[in-house]
């Protein structure tokens, strides 16, 4: 398993720096937290890592691979999956189809085989459907399999997005405010799932502005404010750091 290493990354929009000189590391097998007030640049940082935005300065490595200039789909193929802050599902597609697109990264079917509808291509699709059904079962979503994803309740949509990210079997998963809008019980359940993923060796980067959730769950926490990394350390160190308290409570 590989670690994500970010060195001196900055991003300017026009003359404005949204993220400046950020250094961080997301190791495999751990839950790493990234917190910060609204507008701190958390989502920008995610977009830089995943190649949705291009980095202005600095470098991003994933294991031995330099992914600084790599476009989004190739970052995904390298094994980095993400969820979105505002859930983004294929609203018109069924729940199971939403999960199945997650397998795309590891599919063996070639384009010509798909165009010709070869037996191998159809067999793989059938196999993936089985796997998707198992995943739905694990998340207690089987009975929604054929429903349109756009029509689901909020919490269920979150789960579909999570299943989709997991279906791609990533080495690193970036979760952008995955428990936003959930109550403590629901958040706690998801938190357990995240811990389980880390135990199995996956790297987990959890982006939140809910400090409590992050500190109970994470092994290591980074704090971003106005595009700068103002603190990092264990959850205990973070909650007692004066700079963090100022950032959250305002000076």
């Amino acid at each position: 398993m590989s670690a994500l290493v970010i060195k001196g990354v900055s991003k300017h929009f026009g003359g404005v720096a949204a993220v400046s000189d950020v250094n961080m590391e997301v190791p495999p097998g751990k839950v790493t937290g990234l917190i910060g007030p609204n507008g701190a640049g958390k989502t920008t940082l995610i977009n830089l890592i995943t190649g949705v935005l291009t980095v202005s300065e600095g470098s991003i490595h994933f294991g031995a691979q330099d992914i600084t200039e790599v476009p989004a789909y190739k970052v995904a193929r390298a094994g980095i999956s993400r969820t979105f802050q505002n859930i983004r599902l294929l609203a018109e597609a069924s729940v199971i189809d939403n999960v199945m697109i997650g397998f795309y990264r590891n599919e063996k079917t070639t384009t010509p085989a798909s165009l010709l509808g070869l037996h191998s291509a159809r067999r793989e699709t059938a196999a993936l459907r089985d796997r998707a059904n198992k995943l739905l079962e694990r998340f207690g979503m089987s009975k929604f399999a054929d429903q349109e994803a756009g029509g689901l309740a909020y919490g269920h949509q979150r789960r579909v997005e999570m299943m989709r990210a997991l279906a791609s079997d990533p080495a690193l998963i970036l979760l952008d405010e995955p428990v936003a809008g959930m109550n403590d019980v629901e958040a706690g359940e998801l938190g357990e799932i995240f811990r389980g993923l880390a135990r199995n060796g996956m790297g987990v980067l959890l982006i939140e502005h809910n400090v409590r959730f992050v500190t109970t769950l994470c092994d290591f926490v980074y704090v971003l404010d106005s595009g700068r990394m103002i603190a990092s350390g264990s959850p205990e160190q973070i909650v007692n750091d004066p700079a963090v308290i100022t950032a959250y409570l305002g000076s």
């Binding site: 995943t50 949705v52 476009p71 989004a72 789909y73 190739k74 995904a76 193929r77 999956s81 993400r82 979105f84 983004r88 599902l89 294929l90 697109i101 997650g102 795309y104 990264r105 989709r164 791609s168």
Partner: peptide, 9 residues
């Protein structure tokens, strides 16, 4: 954006 986040070019 979803498509490319899952490795689809």
């Amino acid at each position: 954006a979803v498509a490319s986040s899952l490795g689809v070019s």
